[in-house]
Nucleic acid binder design. Structure first.
Lengths: 209, 209, 209, 209
DNA sequence: TATGAATGAGTCTTCATTCAT
DNA sequence: GATGAATGAAGACTCATTCAT
């Protein structure tokens, strides 16, 4: 069947990108085979080359397409929160979904593996995803401090610490998510995280830093 | 010069393993070239095959050799601590060194990239390194609770949260450690982490969980 | 030109098998180069691997395809003969063709050379070709004895003796067939053989065994 | 241990040639490994190169040494026979030993396999062994004819026919000699052969050719 | 002399990419 | 537009040969 309309083409393109995400995540960039990607999208090798010039081109298109997902939405959602504590709680609620349902962890895995082959992609990902995420957290913290809600020594480093369990969980999920003894209750984990953050960051009278 | 004694051979073997660590970390298992590994150790391709039967054999030897480094020492050190807080502080002191000076982060990067090609290695690493690390933290926490020092809801999940910044920092270090704007002051980061942990976990009278 | 239909593919496959027969016969299995085989069939190395998974696979396909040639026809032809003498004469007529025109001698040469690498192939060849041939001769002899035509002490051993000149001639042909001083008049040779067989095997009244 | 005397050197040389015969016969020239040959002679690879310049040199030395065995003795023995029939009977007696105990069949196997790589060796073998053998038989036949003992149409072709079962048996022996169902009673076979030859070749009054 | 560590040319095999159909 | 047959560059691995010890 042929894709004549633009929508049909976009559909094929998307199917190929999805297939590429799967194959690259499973095998890594070097070991993934173009034929397998095409087959996974129910297309032929030749057709793949109608949509992407080369393996590298496909890889970069993949990162471009998937790397900046609903981050905007999350950003908006969190920024609108009336209090920093609520914002952190929202984070805790969103994290499991982001890890279990979005392509982000698999993409991160690929990028980690190929960071030396494609340093500009690793940089792009850092700036547009991780540092942006840390920036959001940091501004939440800074707002909390301004409002006298929180007590935070170094908002940038603190944001980094807060991201830690997310990265660990993302890596864990792509590596062991499908093993029977690798499952972790992420809802519980991030709820606990939120409670600890409250205990650690909320301003108190009785105890000096 | 030729390696005739067993010590000289061990030296060559080590040199090859070091070279392999570098190449695998830089390019990933599939993209690394045996000849490059040999050259990096100032040996020829053929010599490499005198020491390792195949690329896969070399990879597995690499994991076997480098995967369980001074973890024993750390374990002993931490277990001997008189109080849980001191143990966590010791962790905070050791973490930067482990991340910046040991081969663990680079090894972790390789294993993340190849987890689907070598699931048994990913499992080995999980059990012998990550879960072991989390286990140590957990027993520290449990001792702290027993002594009435700490207040911990779920020691296993808490240990996982505590590992988070370590994993993030390790990944960050291998990906961006050599970039000018990628440097992070790990001493400061983990000192801060230790302080937050104290605030979050130390038992208080005045505030219910 | 590209082989798109099944027939065209079969043609390529045949061409590759023919080329393989030539190269293996000339150099032996180990010394034959896959690229040379492909080139001899006017194809590239890569294309050869579209048709055969490996060198060994190609070798086995070669034996499967060429090893049991018109043996069925010969068997039928000989079995239908009204008398044993005629059957032996027919043999004598067919032998030169089998040696000079069929792939059997070259195939035998390859199999002799590789009998230790591929003992199952040597066994296959023995059972499906040599012992089958000897079996036909033997049954001819036994029929001749039953009919009172021949006097044969040990039909199995006698069949083996009768095969002797065929094997010698086959080996000779592949080794020296193209040398000026290596040519042998096979028609004459096997006609003479048939006459000797008549003298040796035909029942006589005047002379006891 | 070092071979200082000439005899000791000759011993090493012989051991290497024996080992080479075994390895070349088992694997063929291309697939045989110099290291395996050395090891089979309980020597090191380096030592092998003290005795033979190269693999090819070793191969040629092997043929030179083993190709012309006790053929002289056989030749003398047979030539001295008072009658052609006795000479043929002697042949029948010697054949099994030549096939089962001498290196000739294994050597023949190697030479068959490598005839295209080393055509000069195949030629050498033909002239110095096969044609010489056939020549002896032929002169026996011619003497028999002169003496009125035998009736032979074409002594050269007849000699070739007589050699047939020897070649078949030699090939059979190296290919299947060690298989349980590959054993043949060579004494019986060649005794039978001798009887058939007598019936076929002895001059008779009663029957015209 | 004897050894076996070291080398690198040579071969099998894979797979990104091209292109005839 | 779509296909998959064809290609050949590239990389793992082997092994004859060399040479330091």
């Amino acid at each position: 069947m042929r894709a004549r309309t633009d929508e049909a083409k976009d559909l094929r393109r998307q199917a190929l990108l999805d297939a590429a995400l799967d194959e690259f995540a499973e095998r890594g960039f070097a070991a993934a085979r173009m034929e397998d990607i095409a087959r996974r999208a129910d297309l032929s090798k030749g057709t793949l080359y109608l949509y992407f010039e080369s393996k590298e081109d496909l890889f970069k298109a993949l990162v471009d397409t998937k790397a900046a997902p609903r981050l905007d939405e999350i950003e908006a959602l969190v920024t609108e929160m009336p209090s920093a504590l609520e914002a952190l709680a929202t984070f805790a609620q969103l994290a499991p979904m982001l890890i279990q349902r979005s392509p982000v962890p698999r993409l991160a895995k690929i990028i980690i593996g190929e960071s030396n082959q494609f340093p500009e992609i690793a940089d792009f990902y850092r700036r547009n995803f991780i540092e942006r995420g840390m920036g959001v957290i940091r501004s939440v913290l800074e707002q909390g401090v301004e409002r006298g809600e929180l007590e935070v020594e170094d908002p940038a480093l603190t944001a980094r610490l807060i991201m830690g369990p997310m990265v660990l969980s993302a890596v864990w999920h792509v590596l062991y998510g499908d093993k029977p003894d690798g499952r972790v209750d992420l809802e519980k984990l991030f709820a606990l995280h939120a409670r600890y953050l409250r205990r650690a960051l909320v301003k108190r009278e009785d105890e000096p830093t």
